[in-house]
Amino acid sequence: MEPLNALVSVSNFMLIPALAYGSQLALGALGITLIYSILRFAHFAHGDTMALGTAAVIGGTLFLQARGIGIDPLPTALLAVPFGILIMSAYLLAADRLVYRYYRKVKAKPMIFVMASLGVMFITNGITRLFMGVGETRFEDGARFLFTVREFREWSGLAEGMALRSSQALTIVTALIVMVALFWFLNRTRAGKSMRAYSDNEDLALLSGINPERVVMITWVITAILLVLAGTLYGLDKGFRPFNYFQLLLPMFAAAILGGLGSPLGAIVGAYVVAFAEMGITYAWRRVFTYLMPEGLEPTSMMQLLPVDYKFAVTFAILVIVLLFRPTGIFKGKVL
């Protein structure tokens, strides 16, 4: 038995990637949960606006790279993130002005909002493809690894190796900083508190002199920050493909609903649960168990519950189970 080797193996292939993926989902799910609690609808355009935001960042990155500006060993994309946030804030505020504000004024049902956001999704998707095409774009530069498998092996003397890609480390650290900043904003600042008040009791917020349009505006800008970061980190980690971003919609919604819609903490917890479930169930555990089981009892199969292609089925199953048995989610959010 070699538990240390098992741990290293599972960290390398499962824990670290899941942690990074979970952080990316968490940033996305936070945006969904914020929009749900302030604007009170499920923002279906989230995945595609994330793609457009990333496209803007890629544009900025190419511009900077062409001029030889970089922040090696960190990826140049980080430098382009503020530009992406600016573009997406403008884009989302424009979408709000042109589409959502009208439905707010006529006090449309949430389902109508959802359909409107579906329309925005298709348009956004079209714009992204116009600029980026449908293929994959890689825009990662700078140092690829914090440490490689070989370096780790030499350092630890273990048979198994572990690598930490810089995009993964960057994702985890950035997500942590953003989450702390977001909680600080929501709980400590006047604007943040007014958002929570508006989410809690719209009419009373109005009576207290809180301007709803301002709250809505702040929400969109925060959403822009969250989704540009989420999209950029995901793209650095796995490459940029518009269709993949659209597909992220499912795990992001599953995370927000699992955590409890409207609860930021829930969105984060939900995101990691979804990420670890997706990775854990589609991971081939054979190697880990080979290290863990006594000699002669090593597994002969792959010990993989589902092929990787089915990872969205896992998310979907989580979503169905939550909606059936605990529709308010872990942290008692609102019922969709």
Binding site: K193, R196, A197, D200, N201, D203, L204, A205, S208
Partner: peptide, 25 residues
């Protein structure tokens, strides 16, 4: 100042935050 009959507080916010929001203007 107006106190509605129902839904007259911000339930998820603390008492102090409720008062702060009252003074928002």
């Amino acid at each position: 100042g107006f106190v509605p009959q129902t839904s007259n507080i911000f339930p998820s916010m603390t008492v102090e935050e409720n008062l702060e929001m009252g003074a928002f203007i």
